[in-house]
Every structure is written in C-alpha cells, then in structure tokens.
Simulated scan of single mutants.
Amino acid sequence: MTQTPTHAYRYQARRALQTAALITILLSLGGCAHIAPSTTLYERLGGESGIEAVVERFLYRVADDPELVGFFANTNIDHLAGSLANQFCAVSNGPCRYEGPPMERAHQNMGITDAHFNQLVEHLAAALREENIALGAQNELLGRLAPMHADVMRYQ
C-alpha cells in the first residue's frame, strides 16, 4: 500500500507530537529526579525514636527465632540494642557516630552462615515494615547495610 503525501505528512506530524510529548514527560521527570529529598534517611526512618522502635522490633523477632536466638545467648541485649541503633543512625546520615567494634571482629568465629545472615535481614525488613517505614527508606537502609555482609562473614 502506498502512502499519499497527506497521509505521510500526518504520520510524521503525529510522530513529532508523540516525540515532543515524550520529551516533555521525560524532562519533567528528570527535573523531579534532580530535586533531592529534603530529608535525610535518618529523618525518613523517624529519627532516634523511629530507629529505636525498629531495633526493638527487630530484636524481638530475632529472640523469637529458634535458629538465631542462640547467637545472642551471652549478649547484653541493652548494649546490643544501643549499638545497633547507633549504627543505623550513623549509616542513615543521622547525628550519631558508630564507635562499636568493626563488623568482622564483632562477628568472628560465630559460625554464621549465609542462611543465618539472610534470616537476620528478613527480620530487619519485617521490623521496618511493621514500623510503617516507607519502602524507599527501607530499601535505602538495607542497601547501605548490605556491604557489611563481607565483613560479617569474613572470619566465619
């Protein structure tokens, strides 16, 4: 089928309008991408009280997990809770500075497997959901913590 000059012109005009509309949409989305969130991850996690609530839920979930609770049998839970909260605060651009031991030393020779590590991550993700932390903030925190896997598993 041959196209008449008018049909070809309409087709080109329609494609040009579609392209212009797409460019407009992309530019408007691109403009939004350049607007950084006005809050830090720390603030999106609820600040000190939000992080403490997440840590508390997380530790209760771990305490109820027969596969994991044994790792914490000889642990001062209050100290652990404070240390975790401090670490989450620091990693989320809060006003804290983590001063605990390096991850490889804190977890050396504990016999942690990848399955154990993954269970801990699942418990943390569940605690974040239960505290109604926005999905983006959940993912960002987990993403910032993920590189610690290599250190935790280094001396297992």
Rank of each mutant, 00 (worst) to 15 (best):
C96D: 02
L141S: 03
E99I: 03
H107W: 07
N86P: 00
R44T: 06
G50W: 06
H107E: 04
E67G: 01
A13G: 04
E99W: 07
H123G: 01
Y98R: 00
V121F: 02
Q3M: 13
F88W: 06
Y11E: 14
P101A: 15
P102W: 03
I35H: 12
C89M: 02
H34T: 15
Q87H: 04
P66E: 13
N118W: 04
T40F: 00
L135M: 14
R154N: 09
Q119R: 15
R105S: 10
E99P: 08
L59H: 03
M153W: 00
D65F: 03
Q12M: 14
G136T: 13
M110I: 02
T113I: 06
D114T: 03
L120T: 02
T2E: 14
F58I: 03
R10G: 07
R14C: 11
A20I: 11
V62L: 07
G47F: 02
Q12N: 13
G46L: 01
R57F: 07
P147K: 07
G136L: 12
C96M: 03
T39F: 01
E67H: 10
L68H: 03
T39N: 09
A73Y: 10
R97L: 13
Q119G: 02
L26A: 14
L26M: 13
L17C: 10
I112M: 10
G50N: 04
H149Q: 14
G143L: 05
M148L: 15
A146E: 11
N139Q: 15
L26K: 08
R14A: 15
R144N: 08
R129N: 15
H116T: 01
A127M: 04
M153P: 00
P5W: 06
A85L: 02
R97P: 02
E56P: 05
C96N: 05
L68A: 05
Q138I: 11
A115I: 00
A127P: 01
F71H: 02
E130I: 09
H123E: 07
R129V: 15
M153C: 00
R15C: 11
F117C: 07
A16V: 14
L68K: 05
F71S: 07
A90L: 04
L29Y: 12
A81G: 06
L124G: 07
D114Y: 10
N74P: 02
R15P: 02
R15H: 12
T113L: 01
T2S: 13
H79I: 06
Y155P: 04
Y155K: 14
G94H: 01
F117M: 01
F117R: 08
P95E: 00
F72V: 04
P37E: 08
E131F: 10
Q108T: 09
A21D: 09
A85W: 03
Q3T: 10
A115L: 07
N132L: 06
A33F: 14
L84D: 05
L59W: 07
G100E: 11
